[in-house]
Design a protein around this nucleic acid. Structure first.
Lengths: 194, 194
DNA sequence: TTTGTTGTTGAACGAACATACAACAGTGCT
DNA sequence: AGCACTGTTGTATGTTCGTTCAACAACAAA
């Protein structure tokens, strides 16, 4: 009876574990810490696996980006249709989404998107779905009142992004309640109490 | 008559040139491109100078951060006092400040601040001055009307940050006029036409 | 011109990096 | 038990990184 030297996983499971390890590394040390060594150490796997399953570091980064977007898209399209605006806001401003660890990941990925052409194309696809869902939720909530839903959605997304940034770089000056205040300062005058 | 092999600068001038080169590198390639080699190549200087003038790469990064904040602080404190809100907004939303190259620098620096404790402390000092000036401008513009100037300032800063992010990662979905629309959507209901 | 100060150079160094790949071993099948 | 398949390992390789430092040279003063 000899103990196995390693656990053999399906490609899907191994890929998922590497992606999760990559996100942990990104959250803790940013893009400069995103190295094969760090990722494999965080995952408990050996160096060769990233190349084997993702073709290289860039492949894993792209997969991490998609994985980071997943919870966001899950919220806005739980069953394919845009959720009611209050529910949407409650989720986006919940401690499930508004957490510093998650936000560091976004900061690291954004900086890379600004510089990496390939990643930006992938981002635009995800962003458009995100924008469309929020826009639909706003329009539905406004009902017959005339509001510029598209523009309000853009503003809301930007405001949320900015609040996430503040939460990362100045956590002592930002908090969940403060973030909610800011969102309400933008939306209430146009939509009434949400 | 022999051509000089290099130009000898004062420490201040040399430091300034290295900082400018660092900002160019940051704008073009993000934090991963911020290497001694790239910076010295961009500056036309030799490898040893960064260590000599800044003690190392981190020293130069801190100096670049301060240099990136300078134009912003110059705007809000032209003569020591907070400028009128409309002027402030015109400047912040001008193509002097709202340029993709500048914004890539911020994205790269933010990601680093989220992870680098020392840089974050320096950031907080600058941020507080920034917030105070904007808050004062809002309060002055509101006059006798009762507005939550502090909170509005936080929201405005976050919104601007977010608009900058969008400009970097989805330039095809964001523009200067759109950004102005978003800012007005936040401020006009509380302050009237600006 | 000569000399002293000091900003500058570029090679040298070890550490960390991404990638490739041949050997290995777990797993299911027969 | 034996076999084939394939996921996994870890070393090897060449590159790039940050830092150091002795030699060098521009410039000002004498």
């Amino acid at each position: 009876m000899t103990a196995p030297k390693y656990k053999r996983l399906t490609p899907e499971d191994r890929a998922a574990e590497l992606v999760q390890a990559g996100l942990r590394v990104l959250a803790k040390g940013g893009i400069t810490a995103f190295t094969i060594d760090n990722i494999c150490k965080a995952s408990g796997a050996s160096r060769g696996l990233v190349g084997h399953h993702f073709g290289g570091k860039d492949g894993l980064l792209a997969a991490c980006y998609a994985a980071a977007y997943a919870p966001l898209l899950q919220v806005i399209a739980k069953d394919g249709t845009a959720p009611p605006l209050p529910d949407l806001l409650d989720e986006l401003l919940s401690d499930r989404q508004f957490r510093r660890e998650s936000l560091n990941i976004w900061l690291a990925l954004w900086a890379e998107i600004g510089v990496n052409e390939g990643l930006r194309a992938e981002h635009l696809r995800q962003y458009d779905r995100y924008h469309a869902a929020i826009s639909a939720s706003i329009a539905a909530f406004a009902g017959e009142r005339q509001v510029a839903a598209e523009m309000l959605a853009s503003s809301l997304i930007a405001l949320l992004d900015g609040l996430w940034v503040e939460m990362c770089i100045a956590p002592s000056r930002m908090s969940l309640p403060r973030a909610r205040q800011a969102v309400e300062a933008l939306l209430v005058p146009h939509l009434g109490r949400v």
